[in-house]
């Protein structure tokens, strides 16, 4: 456990130094993110009714912009966390840093867990800032319940972490999986934007598939709290803990984390046997 905090400390210091040293890049990154979101929202608001109807029902209600932005941010979060295990791992393998991590006495899983937490916290902080700024720009306000939001973000992160560990395990053995993973990340990104309760009223197969994906229920729950203020489409109030998606989110967390960590361990051993551990 001590090792985990040590790695986390090292990661925080490293990230902080790089962020401070390249301050211009950090600030422009935030502005570009904000500008991109504003342009996207404006684009959707200005688009014709037919396009709106064709795209999604999300844009028909008054909070469409905020809904879209929040979905976008959750998507970015999913994109980032999974990307850290795929492209990030590939990059570290190329530079030789991965070999050093593999030879750290704390173990590869601890190292990655600490790195992910630090990176995710920074993503959440910058994303929260951007969401706030965009909602202010368009006059929409989010219904912010700190306890519930924190719980949901944690569960979302754990969920993605499990999925990321599984993908990362594959990348340890088959480095080229990293390229394919971009498609998976894009799919998660799209799902986060368009996920809503209606998806869960599809047929059993589609429904099961949606629940199995690590971002669907997380996005629905976050939107249910932050945008809809616990209100269902018929106007009835449904507390977060009673929302079916919350149950599936918790279940999905347990399943994905177990699968992810087990897969990562297995792949790490397999990678050692193949002689590809840490190398590109």
């Amino acid at each position: 456990m001590f090792g985990f905090f040590l790695v986390m400390k090292a990661e925080i210091v490293r990230s902080w130094i790089i962020m401070r040293r390249y301050w211009f890049r950090t600030i422009t990154g935030l502005f570009i993110g904000y500008g991109m979101l504003v342009v996207l929202v404006l684009g959707f608001m200005a688009s014709s009714d037919q396009v709106e109807q064709a795209m999604s029902r999300n844009f028909e209600d008054a909070a469409a912009a905020t809904n879209f932005v929040l979905g976008f941010i959750i998507g970015m979060f999913a994109f980032g966390v999974v990307g850290m295990f795929t492209q990030g791992l590939q990059g570290m393998a190329r530079t030789g840093i991965l070999e050093q991590l593999c030879m750290s006495p704390h173990g590869l899983i601890t190292n990655f867990l600490a790195r992910s937490i630090v990176s995710a916290t920074m993503t959440i902080a910058s994303s929260a800032f951007m969401v706030y700024m965009v909602s202010l720009t368009f006059g929409e306000t989010l219904h912010f319940y700190p306890g519930e939001v924190l719980l949901l973000l944690t569960l979302t992160f754990i969920n993605l972490l499990g999925f990321g560990f599984m993908m990362g395990g594959l990348v340890l053995v088959f480095k080229q999986v990293g390229q394919v993973a971009v498609l998976i990340r894009m799919a998660l990104f799209g799902l986060a934007i368009y996920a809503n309760e209606d998806i869960l009223h599809q047929g059993a197969v589609v429904r099961s598939l949606m629940h199995a994906l690590p971002i669907t229920d997380a996005a629905i729950c976050l939107k249910h709290v932050l945008i809809k203020d616990h209100l269902l489409s018929d106007g009835t109030v449904l507390p977060l803990l009673q929302h079916p998606s919350f149950f599936y989110l918790v279940l999905s967390c347990i399943v994905w984390t177990s699968i992810g960590v087990a897969c990562f361990r297995y792949m790490e051993n397999w990678s050692r046997a193949r002689g590809t551990l840490g190398a590109y």
Partner: peptide, 17 residues
């Protein structure tokens, strides 16, 4: 590369306990 030698040693030192 973006870190100095001292910062590199501090980073890897923590990774190695």
């Amino acid at each position: 590369w973006p870190l100095t030698p001292l910062e590199n040693l501090a980073y890897y030192g923590n990774l190695k306990n």
